[in-house]
Amino acid sequence: MTPAFAPADHPPVKPGKTGILIANLGTPDGYDYWSMRRYLNEFLSDRRVIDFPAWKWQPLLQGIILTKRPFTSGANYKLIWNEEKNESPLMTITRAQADALREAAVAEWGDQIMVEFCMRYGNPSTEEVLNRMIEAGCRRIVFLPLYPQYAGATSATANDQMFRALMQQKWQPAIRTCEPYFDRPDYIDALAQSVERVLQGRIPGRLVASYHGMPKRYLMQGDPYHCQCQKTSRLLQERLGWADGIIDTTFQSVFGREEWLKPYTVEHVAELARQGVDDIAVISPAFAADCIETLEEINGEIREAYEHAGGKEFTYIPCLNDDPGHIAVMMNVIRDNIGGWATT
C-alpha cells in the first residue's frame, strides 16, 4: 500500500498491525551432543543467569561444563522428547498456547492482530520472530514473557533480548512489556482449578509448590522472585480453602556450589517421607508450560527421592499449559496491556 499523498515511486508500506509476542525460556533443537552444547552455551553464558565475571566463568563453562553436561542433559531430554514432532514438550506446548491465543485474539480484535511466540534461548529466537512481525507490518507489539513471578534470570532477560533485537531495527515498533501475574485472581483460580481437577476433592498430606530456584544472593540483592513465589503459594492456599501447613513452598534445579533459595524440593520431599507424610502432590506454579524441569526433574528425580525415602503416593499436577483457563489468563493480561492499540 502506498501512503496517501506520497509520490508515485514511494515504496509500498504494509498496513499497520498490532502484534502479540509471547516468550518462553527455550529449548535445544535436539538431544544430541552438539544441539545440547549450543543451547547450554547460550543459556549459561547469560549474565542474568550466571553473573560471575566472564574471565572466571567462561573457562569453566567452555571446558568442564560444556564437555560433560550436554551428555547428561541430552539423556534427560531424550526421556521426554516429542518424537512424533521431533521437538521438546516445551516447544509443542508453547506453540499450542500461541495458536490458542491467536484464535482468541483474532476473534476479539480481527485479522489485524498477529500472534507469535519466541524463545529466549534457542529457536525460534526473539530477533527472528521480531523481524518477521515487523516485516508483516506490526508497528505495535505487546510482549509477554511467560513467567508468572518476576526474576532477573527469567522475565528481565527476556525483556533484555527483546530490546537488543530492537536495537537492530531502523524503524522500531512501539513495545509494551507485561508485568508479572503471580497474584492475579484469575491466575490463582486457574492454578486452584488444576489442583482440584487432578486431586478430585482429595486433600493430600502435603501439596509441595516447587518453584525454579536461584542463588540466595540474588534475593539479597533485591530480586523480588522469592517474595512473589511465597505470595502465590499463600493465595493458592486461600483460594483452595485449605488449612495452614498443607502447602509448602520449595525450590528446585540447584546449580553450582553456592547457597540457593531453600528449602530444596528434592531434599524436602525426602524429609516429608521420613516424617511419615505418605501422600504428597507437587505443583509447579512458576512454569507456564511443562518442560525438562517438570517432566523429568519433578516427575523423575524428585519423585524417586520421595519414594526412596519411604513415601508412598506421589501426584504430579501438570502445568497450566494450553488449558483454556490459562489461555483466558493470558488474554486478560494482554487486554490490560493492549490498551487502544487493537482498535486503532
Results as ranks from 00 to 15, higher is better:
Gln252Asp: 04
Ser125Lys: 02
Tyr77Ile: 12
Cys229Gly: 00
Tyr306Lys: 09
His226Gly: 10
Phe163Gly: 04
Leu66Lys: 10
Ala273Glu: 06
Lys262Trp: 01
Val106Ile: 04
Thr154Glu: 02
Gly213Val: 01
Arg120Tyr: 07
Ile292Val: 15
Glu296Asn: 12
Glu127Ile: 08
Gly325Ser: 02
Gln161Asp: 09
Leu320Phe: 05
Leu79Asn: 09
Tyr31Pro: 12
Lys262Asp: 04
Asp244Gly: 14
Phe143Ala: 13
Cys229Glu: 00
Pro263Asp: 05
Tyr316Leu: 09
Pro204Arg: 10
Ala328Val: 00
Glu301His: 07
Gly300Phe: 07
Pro173Ala: 08
Val115Trp: 08
Thr72Leu: 15
Gly222Val: 00
Glu116Ala: 00
Gly276Glu: 09
Gly110His: 08
Leu44Asp: 12
Glu267Cys: 11
Lys170Asn: 10
Ile141Tyr: 06
Gln112Ser: 13
Ala209Pro: 08
Gln97His: 07
Trp260Asn: 03
Val13Arg: 09
Ala156His: 02
Ser73Gly: 06
Tyr225Thr: 07
Gly325Glu: 01
Asn131Thr: 14
Tyr316Val: 06
Phe182Met: 01
Arg102Glu: 13
Leu199Pro: 11
Gly110Lys: 03
Gly325Phe: 01
Thr154Gln: 03
Glu196Tyr: 08
Leu272Ser: 07
His212Cys: 00
Val282Arg: 01
Ala289Met: 05
Gln168Ser: 12
Pro70Trp: 12
Glu127Ser: 10
Ser253Thr: 01
Val277Glu: 09
Leu240Ile: 11
Lys216Gly: 06
Cys227Lys: 14
Trp109Leu: 05
Ile334Tyr: 13
Val208Tyr: 00
Trp260Asp: 00
Gln112Phe: 08
Ile50Cys: 09
Asp336Glu: 12
Lys262Cys: 10
Asn82Arg: 03
Gly325Trp: 05
Arg38Gln: 10
Gln97Ser: 03
Glu135Met: 06
Arg257Ser: 15
Trp171Gln: 15
Thr265Ser: 06
Thr126His: 09
Ser45Asp: 15
Ala273Gly: 13
Asn76His: 14
Arg38Lys: 12
His226Lys: 13
Asp46Ser: 06
His226Phe: 10
Ala54Arg: 03
Ile317Phe: 10
Asn131Gly: 13
Val142Gly: 03
Thr94Trp: 05
Trp81Ala: 00
Gly19His: 03
Arg139Leu: 05
Glu179Asn: 15
Gly245Asp: 05
Gly339Val: 06
Lys170Leu: 14
Ala243Val: 07
Pro7Arg: 13
Cys229Ile: 03
Gly201Ala: 03
Ala4Trp: 02
Ala153Gln: 03
Leu61Ser: 11
Thr94Lys: 13
Tyr39Arg: 05
Cys138Ala: 14
Asp278Ala: 10
Arg95Tyr: 08
Arg132Ser: 11
Val13Met: 14
Asn82Tyr: 02
His212Arg: 01
Trp34Glu: 15
